[in-house]
Design a protein around this nucleic acid. Sequence first.
DNA 1: GACACTTGCTCAAACGTTTGTGCAAACGCT
DNA 2: AGCGTTTGCACAAACGTTTGAGCAAGTGTC
Lengths: 340, 340
Amino acid sequence: MRDKTTIKDIARLAEASPSTVSAVLNDTWQGRRISAETAERVRRIALAQGYRANLQARGLRHGRSGLAGLVLPLHDNRFFAGLSQAFEAEARARGLSPVVVSTRRDPEEERRAVGTLLAHAVDALVIAGTCDPAGSHRLCAEARAAHVFVDLPGIGAPSVVSDNRGGAERLTAALMDAMRPGGSPWFLGGRPGDHATAERIAGFRAETARRGCDSAGRIIACGYTPARARAEIAALCDRLGGLPDALFVNSIMVFAGVLEHLVTLPPEAFAGRVVGCYDYDPFAAFLQFPVHMIRQDAAGLIGEAFRLLDRDARGSEVIAVPPELVPPRTIPQNPFADLG
Amino acid sequence: MRDKTTIKDIARLAEASPSTVSAVLNDTWQGRRISAETAERVRRIALAQGYRANLQARGLRHGRSGLAGLVLPLHDNRFFAGLSQAFEAEARARGLSPVVVSTRRDPEEERRAVGTLLAHAVDALVIAGTCDPAGSHRLCAEARAAHVFVDLPGIGAPSVVSDNRGGAERLTAALMDAMRPGGSPWFLGGRPGDHATAERIAGFRAETARRGCDSAGRIIACGYTPARARAEIAALCDRLGGLPDALFVNSIMVFAGVLEHLVTLPPEAFAGRVVGCYDYDPFAAFLQFPVHMIRQDAAGLIGEAFRLLDRDARGSEVIAVPPELVPPRTIPQNPFADLG
DNA sequence: GACACTTGCTCAAACGTTTGTGCAAACGCT
DNA sequence: AGCGTTTGCACAAACGTTTGAGCAAGTGTC
């Protein structure tokens, strides 16, 4: 084989014109009144030559690429990986070719990623966990590209987010049901300025208040790094003379840090204590002590996102999808589906 | 804004020709003897108009796209997600735009994914965990595209794989060091026909033999599904009247199934027993019983893959990268980096 | 003032498709 | 035979970019 086979090569071999070949290979030949014999001849030769259309050229001509892009902060996270998986399924179901790109939570990188995908004329863009909603939206708007935000609300375009407030209320309720009567729950991790954390704190506050328990002073929004979380939980245990009655851990990263401390404690330290984590990991659900987990509905979020894209939604509408509460030592509905 | 701004629009506004604009925006204007003033004028206008080059057109002209593609079985897996993360970093370091696509371990889907990326003229392709090495290679070869296999050896192109045999030997050694003297280790999970499983079984056999222990009859290659693994371990415990002295679990999926059974056992059932898993999960490392884990070196694998691409390697050479052994209740070198 | 050389650009073709338009031959009808 | 209609295809432009070639005006040299 010389260079890449083009439509012109096929045309030469089939003694036809490029336009005829194009019509045949795009199945528009009846409309263009190509004879069945010619069509068959062209198809045969194209197959024999292993012809594959140059999608750049086609995209250039059409103004569309057939690609659907997902932009996310990182691959290396159960939740986002679940989004990728669901995204690809939905995109393929619509005849689009999915591609996924991550940004390391870097606004500049996010703009570059979105810009690159748009410059390749992606037909639809889902932006998950955005850290520059305004910038990303502006780029998409300039390129007149269909786009939706997921996980964190965007600006100027529709968003699909987890019901963080509701989830936090349910997790808090589960923890308070399980802890000793009259006990005090603590909230650990996250940044209060972040949308998701703010919502979860609100949910935590609402549920504790509903049960006549004042949560003031028991919210430690110490960010997301495991190291910091470990230090904070160690300090807290010191202060309280033991583990808190109930601990609401705001993310799996924070939980990792907390766990580093917890594994240093003797088994009896866990007596009567209960831990919850706003995130899911199948193995974290089976530690020595009971862990209540919240599992976000990746498929549900992506499903709603595509529904918005399908109906070409434009506003700033925000759709909330409820997460799932996974009780301790439980295998959730779709067991280990996200393990591979 | 009307439609997407093109180089012609800029040319009109700057009272220059499209070629001048192109030269300026590609920083080849000195070579083309464009005056500094003209260059500045063009740049200013392009910026003001928010011009972004149409990468399909550029790619069509150049025959390259600036894209680097990673094809993997699924996103939803720590190891593959780690590959994605490392892949994006390496690709960006080379000025390429990374995109990742998964195939659900479906050969047909893999061919489609590879074909689509090639049709978009990706400059480099990394195919991880291939399930159709021959087919994928053929497509790449026809398109004259640089490509490398990772995790599973390919055909016709260079491959980078984990040192499964060596890793299995080390894991087996760790288990036999930790189990009661004279005990017998068992191997569970995988399909013997699979390359990785075959290598791991070979490693398991070699290490047990080296210690004068016959592994015959203690290898249960029952596939990868958690359900099956759960049934097998339950049956085995029944047969032995308790847990085996040491258990080599062949993948995290299998481990998940095993865990479903193990959590039903009383704490004393674990006395003197030791479990190993050929895969890593930060939380699985902290269960009630000690778990030795093997953690594959995603960054190392991808690093080698790009080194091959850099020097345009063509043969069927296979590079083995050693994995890391993570002792029980340990935080590995790069703690929770892959958690997010 | 003729000549060569430099400066600063523009022209046009090409990359591989798709698609609106047109045209020649064949056919049917009177 | 003359006319209109259908059949079966080819031509050429366009998508947005890059790039080899060329051209006109200005500058310097003798």
